[in-house]
Write a protein that binds this DNA or RNA. Sequence first.
DNA 1: CTGAAAGCGCTTACAG
DNA 2: CTGAAAGCGCTTACAG
Lengths: 346, 346
Amino acid sequence: MGLTIYDIASKAGVSIATVSRVFNGSDRVSPATRDMVLSVADELGYQPHASARSLARRRTDVVSAVIPMISNYFFAEVLRGLQDRMAETEFDLLVFSARSLDEMAIQLDRALHRGRSAGVLVFSAPIAGELEALVGKASQPVVLVDGYHPAIDSISSDNRKGGTLAAEHFAQGGVRRPGVLMANRESVPASDRLAGFEARLRLHGIPLDPSLVIENSHPLNDGYNEQGGYAGMKALLSAPNPPDAVFATSDAQAVGALEALKESGRMVGSDIHLVGYDDLPIARYVGLTTLRQPMNDIGGRAFELLMNRMSGTANGTVHTVFSPTLIQRQSTRALAEGTVGEGIAL
Amino acid sequence: MGLTIYDIASKAGVSIATVSRVFNGSDRVSPATRDMVLSVADELGYQPHASARSLARRRTDVVSAVIPMISNYFFAEVLRGLQDRMAETEFDLLVFSARSLDEMAIQLDRALHRGRSAGVLVFSAPIAGELEALVGKASQPVVLVDGYHPAIDSISSDNRKGGTLAAEHFAQGGVRRPGVLMANRESVPASDRLAGFEARLRLHGIPLDPSLVIENSHPLNDGYNEQGGYAGMKALLSAPNPPDAVFATSDAQAVGALEALKESGRMVGSDIHLVGYDDLPIARYVGLTTLRQPMNDIGGRAFELLMNRMSGTANGTVHTVFSPTLIQRQSTRALAEGTVGEGIAL
DNA sequence: CTGAAAGCGCTTACAG
DNA sequence: CTGAAAGCGCTTACAG
């Protein structure tokens, strides 16, 4: 299909400028001309050439997303929100996925290549060192998704707030001896969740026994995994003085914990309570109280931020922070105190 | 950064042709010239412009993937395999995601735009009607992933074989009265899995009572969901003559079924057996016997197929079919008959 | 090994 | 409303 604008122009008996105008929706074309050009183009099956167009226009309708571990539920959902929002526009999405921080730098470097895209979304990466340098000298706008840097637009979810909500739920429900199933210490989201949780407990004068804060022993996926939750809950249950409610920094860990609780014969939601984080599809299914992040909104909003930057509309640096919501389900049933959630196990 | 090849050329005291040759790894440049051009380019921070390059070369180093429901585990994993393979090349990946068949056509149409990419991967779509027409007149090579059409290169997983393996496992283990938790009837993969299952049972002279084949009542995600598996298993258990082993067409359904089995007090893996499909991460965790598809390999192989097509190396239509593997775990423990699988619940 | 020049397929002031 | 022409930033025969 080597059809060019020249073929259409000659066949339609107009200049290439006119054909171009028709395809760019210019209003400086008479309806009659437009219709005829369109019908010729349609008949011949003409399509403008993407690269030629971006070169001539000096801009491209492509956005890049640099993502660690694309197979992760959170990223996949954010990406979905992003694409839904993008579908309404002319933009296409270039995806660069990495499996480590080093790879993030490599992929970001690729994404930043001149003429490749009009803007870049960087997911969940601590912006320092090499990444910071790359973003610093980037010639296209960058927006951080699920990340933060004082000088770069960002959009994220308030992890401290999530921890706070969990603690508040516990406090209101009369929890006296809380425990925590923590992901890897190095994980920034998990640390923030824990920090918010601790601070709010303190406010209520509820002590958090350090021996009841179990760090995940399985490193997979930064410690957000079932195995570690299972092992951690086993450890908590065999403590001299076990907790009466547990906050897990992810649903994956919580699902593992549920397994351990079932084996122990405990009634979850009455004997002991459990709160997760993420609201994976399975959370609803197993009746797990959890913190939900508006993943789709995050994706959509990220694209909007980037659009503003690309069009030069934006002024100062913008940091958008979404709040998580506590979804109350059976795993904290007895804590309900009137705050009946939407949650039924099935 | 409006740096062009001219800036580098003049600063380096050579022609733009030479600069171009350096950046294209041509060997028709003296080492000395090469080094000096490179150092100038490096100093100034020059990068070739992607669109200009593809326009002049008359080809692009971009591949498109058209995907339904990107948040699905299977697609995310295949995508990962694809990207791992692509990372070794100069290719970038454009992702178009759809939420329905109609949207698949729209997105495929976008992906097929001239100059946008050098080849397109179409995921899990029945190629007929509008989609077939689009692929038919496409000017770039198309490879079907998890799909089939006689005239188009494809790569897929043998779903009939998966059903056969499940049936064989049941037959060898002495199952007398099998049941099936079926996804939506319209789902091609589920139908194929069921067909293979039935055929192999027949071969062994084991009857499959139609009343023990329960179609999922929850339409979400084509019937591959926990809720339907739960409800379906409840129905099977309350049958006048319940099954002694159940084949679920997905792990999601099987996880729901496990829940129902637990509530019923049945010992899974001895009183009754259960086999899923997909080998989701949670399958290993809950000790579910299942059929695993080599998702990463599928992605990598899809890219290779496309590369061959793009380079014109390929001859006839190529259909690659991967076989699933039965991963034996606790949920069919008593069927083991020596075939001890790798599976331990934790 | 190197350069001058044509060409890739569009867009967009500038004139009319 | 329409056209002629320059330009977007490269690549690649063609000559030397």
